[in-house]
């Protein structure tokens, strides 16, 4: 994602953070954690398995996008001592 301005990066980063918070809420809601519920299945995967796998994948995608757009990196890197 080349040549993004800092303000655009900040905006995309905020969207990533919002998506992650939303995923956390979804993951700990009955959408994923419904006690003793197996349905609906996705193929052979029961509810909690496929929904939590999906949550992981979207979190991973957010990490990739976040790594690209995180805006507060203007200082040149220095060797830490």
């Amino acid at each position: 994602m080349p040549n993004l301005t800092t303000s655009k990066k900040a905006w995309y980063w905020k969207i990533c953070v919002a998506v992650v918070f939303l995923l956390v809420i979804i993951c700990f809601s009955p959408l994923v954690l419904l006690p003793k519920e197996l349905e609906p299945f996705a193929g052979y995967l029961p509810r909690t398995l496929w929904t939590s796998l999906l949550v992981y994948i979207v979190l991973f995608l957010c990490t990739i996008i976040g790594a690209i757009v995180y805006p507060y990196n203007q200082n040149p890197d220095k060797k830490q001592k």
Binding site: L33, S52, L59
Partner: peptide
């Protein structure tokens, strides 16, 4: 256990 460790780790990496 997947949520306990994997999902928590994914949030940590972000």
């Amino acid at each position: 256990s997947w949520i306990f460790l994997a999902v928590s780790d994914a949030i940590m990496f972000f």
